[in-house]
Design a protein around this nucleic acid. Sequence first.
DNA 1: GTGAAAGCGCTAACAC
DNA 2: GTGTTAGCGCTTTCAC
Lengths: 351, 351
Amino acid sequence: MTAGGPGPADDAAEPVAGKQPTIKTIAALAGVGVGTVSRVLSGRGYVSPDTRVKVESAVRDLRYRPSAIGRGLKEQRTKNIGLLVADVSNSYYGDFAKGVLAEARHLDRHVVVGSSDDDPGAEREYIELFLEQRVEGIIAFPSRENLAAWREAQEMGVHLVFADRVLEELSVPSVTVDNHDGAYALTEYLIALGHRRIGYLGGPRETTSGREREQGYRDAHGDAGIEVDEELVVPSHFTRRNAFANALRILGAGRLPTALVASNNILGEAALGAVRHLDLTIPDDISLVMFDDVPWATLVSPPITVVTQPARRLGREAARLVVRGAEFTSSVLVRTELVVRSSAAPPRAGD
Amino acid sequence: MTAGGPGPADDAAEPVAGKQPTIKTIAALAGVGVGTVSRVLSGRGYVSPDTRVKVESAVRDLRYRPSAIGRGLKEQRTKNIGLLVADVSNSYYGDFAKGVLAEARHLDRHVVVGSSDDDPGAEREYIELFLEQRVEGIIAFPSRENLAAWREAQEMGVHLVFADRVLEELSVPSVTVDNHDGAYALTEYLIALGHRRIGYLGGPRETTSGREREQGYRDAHGDAGIEVDEELVVPSHFTRRNAFANALRILGAGRLPTALVASNNILGEAALGAVRHLDLTIPDDISLVMFDDVPWATLVSPPITVVTQPARRLGREAARLVVRGAEFTSSVLVRTELVVRSSAAPPRAGD
DNA sequence: GTGAAAGCGCTAACAC
DNA sequence: GTGTTAGCGCTTTCAC
């Protein structure tokens, strides 16, 4: 730092591979006690300017970095938070993670990430791991299969924040969008265009978000006095293969629906793929709308009408809540927004 | 575990919020010494079956989880590795991260993630943070601005693995694709179709990958005896706004190129957006090919011809290398693969 | 104002 | 076989 540029040799103060200086090393070099070094570093307590300078220069010379492990042991907690998503490569989770990371950095926290691939076993392992790491909190898209594990984590005093869905048995703060509202808006929009046979490619009914969205779809029908054709309502897992097969199933129903609602980005991708596969034209043969405003929604033609979830913002909120150790009552619920583009049109006469 | 189901009260053995049992607690409950508990848990050394049972049951009763902090302090290292990407929400990095996480889990490692947004300052902070955390290794997409910091990390004995690009001054193992080859294949393919005015929307020339890809584009021209029109070669940062502006710049050049190569997914997205913005038709008005086989490449019409990078596999390899503490000479270089779809066609007669 | 020392949870060396 | 103990790096209390 003093000389500017990577000058080859100052003295004998070069750090050696694998041997990191400890606070004791610094104390010795500065000719003071370890307590003093600690005081200088933390800024707590008084040190004479003279001593301070000596310590600081020793710190620089040896490129000393206090060990988070040593500190963590003493303070009985880390500044780490665990983030558990279903699939890091899904851009929705990616956006969410981005929000978490940004806020975490801001709050001087570090994020250990797990990707469970929707496998409850993997989820469980990650919970266990986070607990062993003594993380300060965990942000997760939880599955009910691990209810007991989540409860235990909570009882151990780990701050929990759930995202997207909720486990009703547990009083855990959450960040979610208004799922019912979003699905309702999408469906209502299609109904207003004149559609009466609307397919619904939904998420698993095991999650609250899956159920809420489906209910939104159903309520939009009910409020318009339209009956839902159960053949057109298909819950699906979020794997690409599964989603594609289920999309085909809807499109292969007795009579082709005139419109289709996909309840997240993976399902939307599958729906679009299936539509293409069957050589159908959007919106002439079928209208398509979906949850999540992914980058490709405006790249395809026609651009897709969507309901957006502010994933990044939800991530930021989650990080804030988890660090604060917020109560259940501080849960964040944000509204979705309908973005109308060109993938839906009135059904053809005769349909 | 014994009773199955979350039975309300066994005894007084319920864990209390915030107070986690330590090895000493277990030892006391089992009526043995802490060393014995440690031996049972680690499986090293002998313990009588009798004692083992007592310890194990105490562990279960108290839901004891050994503290990674305590262990880390003693063993002078953690099982954490740092992963530093430019943008977690970019699906390329997401895929890469997925590979890293999968392999890390397999190797019993945990991953602390940072997202630098291509900001060298943020990158530096993350390096610092990883070092304080005493991570075992770091996987990163490095920027040359932090050469000194990376060197220092290496000197401290932290295992480094670079991805995508390389810092030539440092002898660090890397996982990369054959950048030159990929860009060459893309360009050569266009030339074979008859194109002579091919635009190139590339990455920053500061990175080795940016330079190598551009050189591939140039060499394909050279080998075909075609001169490159410098006006058509535009390096760009990977921000969406920047990329879009640069794409427009190429498409607004003196004479419209008949084809365009985008050197990664963000640039491809921008290129496609710009093409749409100008109301050009692919491939009639212009052919478009790109690096990275993103999900949307087959969702748009016509589907885009790409060169694929096996991001997930690269992530796995990176994790393996970093845990092994591999040498520079174990660097992994994988070939790209040209996937021909329908976004390129011979130029129109007269162009 | 500063040094010495205890103790956080764990492992490993050593004594029994 | 098993208990005891030292010590990992740090913070903090308590004498001086």
